[in-house]
Every structure is written in structure tokens, then in C-alpha cells.
């Protein structure tokens, strides 16, 4: 009797520790966010489990509600690990938003609002007395949300443009859901009958995260008027409509060095170190090492 109890407790302790974790580059801040354009694009997630599948099948699945129980008819089962399986300890899941939506009777095109699925791992676990529980519970240790975001951010306001020497400085407002900004410098096409010019070819483009909203657009021609527009991107990669077109003209300017050289300054740059200079530099380095390296005697 005592032996039975000891064995069952040993068994239970191993079963109690069962867990499933999820990892992969697709997971960013415990989220996998896809746009409408990426609705059918596969996303790879690695699962790893520990402990025994002691009582019942372990399900890895996508739920549009909570990670409890077993997959229902509207849920997408990704992996089943049979009771007693000691071989399947890790593997790769392929997540497609289109599959998850279809399972719930939805489509990528028809879904116009954000939809969130939970990546779940559930099975019947063992209680402290070594008895299998009646219901499946969550054994996933990583809470991962698989999110369909079909809505692009709103367009940024018309950017503020300042002319620099051979460049433009562009300041962009950040829409609320944006995580990335793009600025495009475009040539201007004259409007009909002298009307408002419109955007022509893209001359240069630059992407930056939203924590830096000032763009320096280089390699432009001084005196030429350019159009400037901005786009915002959200976490899913949805691109906003273009902002209203602003214009700016690079203006030549003189820095201090231009002023010095133009005034006749004879400095030619360089380190000013001939053979003697190099020797002095070596002496400086050696003495510096001596000054800073000797330890205090006590």
C-alpha cells in the first residue's frame, strides 16, 4: 500500500510539472500580428514540452476565447500528443490566419475588424493526490496571441518640411496605432492649368521607427522644389494612405568650415603628426598607461 502510494506520488510529481512553451521569431512581445495581405502567410512557432502526458491527449490549438477545455468546432487544432507519448517533446507549428478564420466561419476578405486568437496547450493534469482531473486545463507557459489586424493606421498629417543644404528635414506626426513611418521625397508634376502640383516619381525614401519622427532626406538638388509625403505602418505591417503632399526646397548654406576656408584660412586638416608627432603620441600613451595603471600602495 505504501509502495503504491509512493509510486503514485512519484508519478504525480512528474505529471504535475508538465508544461508547453512557445517560441520563434514570429512572436513579438507575445504577439503574432498579421495584416490582411499576410492572412494566408504561414507563421512558424516552435513548441517545447516537459513532463508526462499522464491522463489524456495534449492539444495545441488556436482558440478565439480562452485556453480552457478542449478544441471546439470553431477552434483550429494544430497538434495532438497522445497520452503516454514520451517521444514528441518539441516541434514546429505552422499558423495561418486564413485557416483560423475559416475554422470559425470567417474569411480574410470578410473580416473587417481585429480578431484575436489564443495559442493554447491544454490537457487533463494530475492533482496532488495523483488523480487525473476531470477537465482539461491550460499547460502553456507562454501566452501568445495570434491577431488579425485588417485596418491600416490613419494617414499622418502633412509633414513639416525644412530646406537644408542638399537635403530636407522632414518632421512627421505619428498616428496612434503606428509603429513605423516612411517618408518619400517625390518629384513634382505641374497641375493642369497651373493648378496644385501632384506627386511624380519617388526620388528617395526612408523608413524609421516612430520614436524618431524627424527624417533627414539627403542627396537632393539645391534649388529644386520637391514633394514630400509620409506613410504610417502598424505592427501588422498595414500601410496607411499617403499624407497630404508637402513641398520643400533644399537651400545651400555655409558651415563654419566653409566660412574659414573662404576667408583664407590655411588649415589643411590632418592629424598634424609627422614622425615627431607620432613619437610624442606614443610617449603620451605610455605615460597615460603609467599614470592610470599603478595601484595605490597601502
Amino acid at each position: 500500500m505504501r509502495l503504491t502510494l509512493a509510486v503514485s506520488l512519484l508519478f504525480a510529481s512528474a505529471a504535475l510539472g508538465q508544461s508547453v512553451s512557445f517560441s520563434g521569431t514570429a512572436i513579438q512581445s507575445n504577439e503574432i500580428v498579421v495584416s490582411k495581405a499576410d492572412c494566408a502567410t504561414p507563421k512558424q512557432v516552435t513548441w517545447t514540452r516537459t513532463g508526462n502526458v499522464a491522463c489524456d491527449t495534449l492539444f495545441i490549438w488556436l482558440s478565439d476565447e480562452n485556453c480552457t477545455g478542449t478544441p471546439g468546432t470553431g477552434d483550429l487544432t494544430l497538434k495532438e500528443i497522445s497520452q503516454g507519448d514520451t517521444v514528441s517533446l518539441t516541434g514546429t507549428l505552422t499558423l495561418r490566419m486564413s485557416d483560423a478564420l475559416t475554422k470559425g466561419g470567417l474569411t480574410c476578405e470578410g473580416q473587417t475588424t481585429e480578431k484575436t486568437f489564443k495559442l493554447c496547450a491544454t490537457t487533463k493534469t494530475v492533482d496532488t493526490l495523483g488523480q487525473c482531473k476531470d477537465t482539461d486545463s491550460n499547460v502553456g507557459t507562454t501566452s501568445v496571441s495570434f491577431i488579425f489586424d485588417p485596418s491600416p493606421p490613419v494617414a499622418p498629417d502633412a509633414p513639416s518640411v525644412t530646406g537644408l543644404d542638399g537635403a530636407l528635414s522632414v518632421s512627421v506626426s505619428v498616428p496612434s496605432t503606428a509603429t513605423q513611418l516612411r517618408v518619400e521625397v517625390v518629384s513634382l508634376v505641374a497641375g493642369e492649368d497651373g493648378g496644385t502640383p501632384t506627386a511624380g516619381d519617388v526620388v528617395s525614401s526612408k523608413d524609421q521607427a516612430t520614436d524618431n519622427t524627424t527624417f533627414r532626406m539627403d542627396n537632393l538638388e539645391n534649388g529644386v522644389q520637391y514633394g514630400v509625403r509620409a506613410f504610417a505602418f502598424d505592427k501588422a505591417g498595414n500601410q496607411s494612405p499617403a499624407s497630404a503632399l508637402s513641398t520643400g526646397t533644399p537651400i545651400p548654406s555655409n558651415g563654419f568650415w566653409d566660412a574659414y576656408i573662404d576667408a583664407g584660412g590655411k588649415e589643411t586638416g590632418g592629424c598634424g603628426a609627422g614622425g615627431g608627432g607620432i613619437a610624442l603620441g606614443a610617449v603620451l600613451a605610455a605615460l597615460g598607461f603609467w599614470v592610470t595603471s599603478r595601484r595605490k600602495q597601502s
Binding site: W257, D258, I261, G269, C271
Partner: peptide, 12 residues
């Protein structure tokens, strides 16, 4: 800053 082909950097 570069002016007249001379780069504005050095050591004195």
C-alpha cells in the same frame, strides 16, 4: 564639413 575639397578635421 568639407570646403573646397578640404575636409574639416584634424589635430593640433
Amino acid at each position: 564639413n568639407t570646403a573646397q575639397g578640404i575636409k574639416g578635421s584634424g589635430g593640433k
